[in-house]
Design a protein around this nucleic acid. Structure first.
Lengths: 248, 248
DNA sequence: CGCTGGCTTGAATCAAATCAAGATAAGTGG
DNA sequence: CCACTTATCTTGATTTGATTCAAGCCAGCG
């Protein structure tokens, strides 16, 4: 039962919190007002499945708030998360009408949706949208490839450190804080979801988080609140080329 | 020393073997003739590095013939292949000027190159190119995500079976043969390269190939020539949802 | 209260890595 | 043509990092 939650009074594209990062980022005022008329908001509760893999999908959308995940499942139940969708991320593929992955709301989520057909037409007429979508897709491809290195070659400890570092970076870029000395982040995922993302079991995730805490790389307030006393140390533990992309 | 190999008499875009799959696939005759004047061929010998990660890259290109790989390397030498480039695949990212990965020729390779700046200008003027590039990038993203499932959740045996199945599929789609009963493929990679692709060691790759052979899933002529008596059996061993994408 | 879901921790097991030796094949130069 | 080198691959023995199986903790909640 697709219970919808309040989508609030969001209407003006000009005031949209994801205005400058979403697929519409490059649009001019007139283009924006066209989108304004096409769009509709939809809310999903934490835990709710937004789309099932294989289902017909007649819309595309941007995540406005909240966090969603993309996961693949094998017949015997093994699961691998293949994407983490944060505000401004795009869902759905123009030119395909069934979903390739399960999309699940991890927190309450609000999405800015467009019916697929009109959106595709608009895209053809509006290079700004296609351009931005290409750029976003290339970024996602890079992220996926970085994740391939993590999944294929990193140890459990490095995987956990990498995940925390990535969440911290995204968090910082969203709130425009520098990732410097002492900083705190909230893990948006359960241990099991982290395991699905990292290609581990939830027990291993738990153990490695405990180990990083024991070794003073992180400290914990409760189970979700992480403080990072020394970000460089964390990045080192992640095994990354430590420049690690202060992206534009 | 960037020794170039003969690039042959390829000149006419109309006769190009990758005409219908490459980034230029959707171009009209006039657009094609513009590209015709911009393009230049370049050859690389097997084993040669085409670009180093981090290097300035002032061109983009399509693979015309041969096979190249994209790999990431950690400081301590651990390597993960993040892409396998076959004829018609695109190399380089418009809007970025340094390479994100090492690109290496696995066999002798011929590439159809464009200097980046003119190509970007052309892209802005020619929606057909941007459109096709978006489509290709979305396909690559899907492939990367499929690979994430493999890297994160599959066993060594499943990984090997998956790799062989994928190579067989691509091979068939390139030569327009159906992937039916009995078919043969040549592995385009050494055991070590397979290991880098699959997130394994070369010893494990060797052992699992032997095991698949012992169990009659495949048979070998030499080290590279693989015959697949029953493709469905192979797909089953790969742990895939056996429909497995007879892509358009 | 007494659950229930999320998490932690321990002990045993196992799949793949590592370490090590040799086999096979393809040059290369005397 | 043959000895020598080198690259690639196979196979075996051992080790190890992560999984599996199992128990119990903790916070929130009906």
């Amino acid at each position: 039962m697709a219970l919808q939650i309040a989508t609030g009074a969001l209407v003006e594209c000009g005031d949209c919190p994801i205005r400058h990062r979403a697929v519409c980022a490059r649009c001019e005022t007139d283009e924006l007002s066209t989108l304004e008329h096409m769009k509709y908001y939809r809310g999903y509760e934490a835990g709710q499945t937004i789309v099932w893999s294989g289902d017909r999908m007649d819309f595309v959308a941007s995540v406005v708030s909240g966090i969603a995940t993309l996961t693949q499942t094998m017949e015997d139940g093994r699961r691998q998360m293949v994407g983490l969708l944060l505000p401004s991320d795009f869902v759905g593929r123009p030119g395909r009408n069934t979903a390739a992955y399960d999309v699940t709301a991890t927190t309450d989520v609000v999405m800015c949706c467009f019916r697929k057909k009109p959106f595709e037409d608009m895209m053809r007429k509006t290079p700004h949208i296609a351009e931005r979508l290409l750029e976003m897709t290339l970024d996602e491809l890079d992220a996926a490839r970085e994740w391939m290195l993590l999944l294929g070659r990193k140890t459990a400890r490095e995987k956990i450190a990498s995940l925390i570092a990535i969440i911290a970076r995204r968090d910082a870029s969203l709130h425009l804080r520098p990732v410097g000395g002492n900083l705190a982040v909230t893990l948006p995922l359960t241990r099991e979801e982290m395991a699905d993302y990292l290609g581990l079991t939830l027990e291993t995730v738990s153990r490695q988080i405990s180990a990083l805490k024991r070794d003073g790389v992180i400290s914990l307030e409760g189970k979700r609140q992480v403080t990072i006393p020394d970000f460089d140390r964390l990045v080192e533990e992640a095994g990354d080329d430590n420049d690690g992309g202060m992206l534009a």
